[in-house]
């Protein structure tokens, strides 16, 4: 039984292996990009619009509103990063219903890559909005004694981000695989539906947590810290 799509290798060139993770990631990317392009090339600026444009607008507006709610800032700069996190994870998990498809998010490599992106994006956004000095100062607040704990916290939450997503998606796949051998026909379908729900929730959690981390780095320290706690506690599965 394959647990991770990393182990399915289609083509090998030296150290580089073209595995299922990368291939299915490209598939998701292609779907998202093509879909967006097809809809947005004929965008209507009149009040009357197509259903697909309406869907995209609802998505974009929804993401913008979520970002604005969490960060209490203009969503503009964060929209591409956070929105793409959500759309990519959601699409990757959604396609799980297709037989033969393996979610790239079920690979720890993918979730680690996404977590690393968040890990890097937090200081990038923080420095961009507050300047390097002020941003780095928050590591030694309230006292310099807290520096190691702050750094550990930063790293551990990134690891948690990666493992949480990977664990949820992988477990879903594994549970369905096990159930298929134990009780075939109907019960796995229910679990598959549950897996879809979990996938969407995980996409939402990942994007929101990323936004919370970025917001805590960009806004005033106390404000951001309280925000992080507020959103962290209930969404931790």
């Amino acid at each position: 039984m394959t647990i991770t799509p990393d182990s399915i290798v289609y083509w090998q060139w030296g150290d580089f292996a073209l595995n299922a993770t990368i291939v299915f990631t490209w598939l998701v990317m292609a779907l998202l990009t093509l879909g967006s392009w097809l809809v947005t090339r004929g965008l209507s600026e009149d009040p009357k619009l197509s259903r697909w444009q309406n869907l995209l607008e609802v998505l974009v507006v929804g993401i913008r509103n979520q970002i604005a709610q969490v960060s209490h800032q203009q969503p503009g700069p964060y929209l591409p990063f956070v929105g793409t996190l959500f759309l990519f994870i959601a699409m990757a998990n959604l396609l799980n219903v297709i037989p033969g498809y393996m979610a790239p998010t079920g690979s720890l490599s993918t979730t680690t890559a996404l977590a690393i992106c968040v890990f890097v994006a937090v200081p990038v956004f923080g420095i961009a909005s507050k300047g390097a000095g002020e941003y780095l100062q928050h590591y030694i607040k309230p006292t310099p004694l807290m520096l190691p704990f702050n750094v550990i916290g930063e790293v551990s939450r990134t690891v948690a981000l990666a493992v949480r997503l990977y664990g949820n998606i992988m477990s879903g796949t594994v549970i369905v695989a096990i159930l298929l051998s134990l009780t075939p026909y109907f019960f796995p379908v229910v679990m598959q539906l549950l897996g879809l729900l979990t996938g969407m929730i995980q996409a939402y959690i990942f994007a929101i947590l990323a936004m919370v981390y970025i917001a805590s780095a960009t806004s005033a320290h106390e404000h951001g810290e309280s925000d992080e706690h507020q959103h962290n506690t209930p969404s931790e599965p």
Binding site: D6, D15, F16, A17, N19, T21, I22, T25, W26, M29, T84, F88, P104, S107, S109, T110, T112, A113, L114, I116, C117
Partner: peptide, 10 residues
Amino acid sequence: ITVSAQVVNF
């Protein structure tokens, strides 16, 4: 390697 590829992909 996959991780770095995925970062680039993302």
